[in-house]
Amino acid sequence: MKFALITVFLLSSIGIANAASVDKGKALVEKANCASCHGAGLNTPILPVYPKLAGQYSDYLYYALKAYKVGNGNPQYGRNNAIMGSQVQAFSDADMQDIAAYIASLPGNFVVKK
């Protein structure tokens, strides 16, 4: 029982230490000028082929950014897009988690059809 409590405490403290920062994410999104393609509020893309990002799940956004960073080097995991591939190269995993947290916090207009 004591081991289980210690394990839970350690795992929860790791999660707290790695919590994403919306403020840092906002600064990174502004610095990378994501709105130049994804539009105002990251919800009005300049072309229909660019996705709306605002309000998307943060874990999906993080893994998408990570896949762009991997690129074609791993065809089972990577995503191939020259623009996004070059955009994410400078970001660390923590940066991408911060970006994902910020974008997920934005109001989106996704519609779930039943």
Rank of each mutant, 00 (worst) to 15 (best):
M1H: 07
F3R: 08
F3E: 13
F3L: 06
F3N: 00
A4Q: 09
A4W: 13
A4I: 13
I6V: 10
T7A: 05
V8P: 01
L11A: 05
S12V: 12
S12A: 06
I14A: 01
I14G: 01
G15M: 09
G15S: 06
G15W: 07
I16R: 01
I16M: 07
A17L: 10
A17I: 14
A17V: 12
A19P: 04
A20M: 09
A20F: 05
D23Y: 11
G25Q: 11
K26G: 02
K26T: 00
K26D: 02
K26E: 15
A27M: 08
V29W: 07
V29T: 13
V29I: 12
E30L: 14
K31M: 05
N33K: 15
C34V: 08
C34G: 05
S36K: 13
S36E: 15
C37K: 13
C37V: 10
G39I: 10
G39S: 12
G39M: 10
G39R: 12
A40L: 14
A40M: 12
A40C: 02
G41V: 14
G41Y: 14
L42R: 11
L42E: 13
L42G: 01
T44C: 01
T44H: 14
I46P: 00
L47E: 14
P48L: 04
P48E: 15
P48V: 02
V49T: 14
K52Y: 03
L53R: 09
L53N: 10
A54M: 06
A54W: 11
G55H: 06
G55C: 04
G55E: 14
S58I: 01
D59Y: 13
D59L: 05
L61Q: 09
L61R: 04
Y62L: 08
Y63N: 15
A64R: 15
A64E: 15
L65H: 02
L65N: 07
K69A: 08
V70H: 04
V70C: 00
V70E: 11
V70P: 02
N72M: 03
G73R: 14
G73C: 01
N74F: 08
P75R: 10
P75C: 03
P75D: 07
P75N: 10
Q76M: 11
Y77E: 15
Y77C: 02
G78L: 09
G78H: 12
R79P: 00
N81R: 06
I83Q: 12
I83L: 12
Q87V: 14
Q87A: 09
V88K: 07
Q89M: 08
A94K: 13
D95A: 05
D95M: 06
D95F: 07
M96N: 00
Q97S: 04
Q97W: 00
D98T: 10
D98N: 15
I99G: 01
I99W: 04
I99C: 02
A100G: 05
A100K: 10
A100P: 02
Y102R: 03
I103N: 02
A104M: 04
L106D: 05
P107E: 15
F110E: 06
V111T: 12
V112M: 04
V112W: 03
V112Y: 03
V112S: 02
K113A: 00
K113R: 08
K114Y: 03
